[in-house]
């Protein structure tokens, strides 16, 4: 599943460490998410959407590989 986490993070001037701290996960988790190697749980997807102030659909694209 393609995601736009890196784009959203860069737009808000956040580092991977900042995002990891806001979500309560490790920086390695953020790296894996951004590289698309790992799909987050629904709970983490909601947290991501809350941090970026957008909808989950704006962060993840299930159609595109």
């Amino acid at each position: 599943m393609k995601n736009y986490i890196r784009d959203n993070r860069s737009e808000r001037g956040m580092t991977q460490d900042d995002l990891a701290e806001a979500l309560g996960v490790s920086r390695q988790t953020i790296i894996s998410l951004e590289k698309g190697r790992y799909n987050p749980s629904l709970e983490l997807a909601f947290k991501l959407a809350a941090v970026f102030g957008c909808r989950i659909e704006d962060l993840f694209d299930p159609e595109e590989e």
């Binding site: 990891a20 309560g24 996960v25 490790s26 390695q28 988790t29 790992y38 709970e43 983490l44």
Partner: peptide, 11 residues
């Protein structure tokens, strides 16, 4: 260590 220290859902 950096992976399991956070004990998050990925780990």
């Amino acid at each position: 260590h950096p992976h399991f220290a956070a004990d998050d859902e990925r780990w």
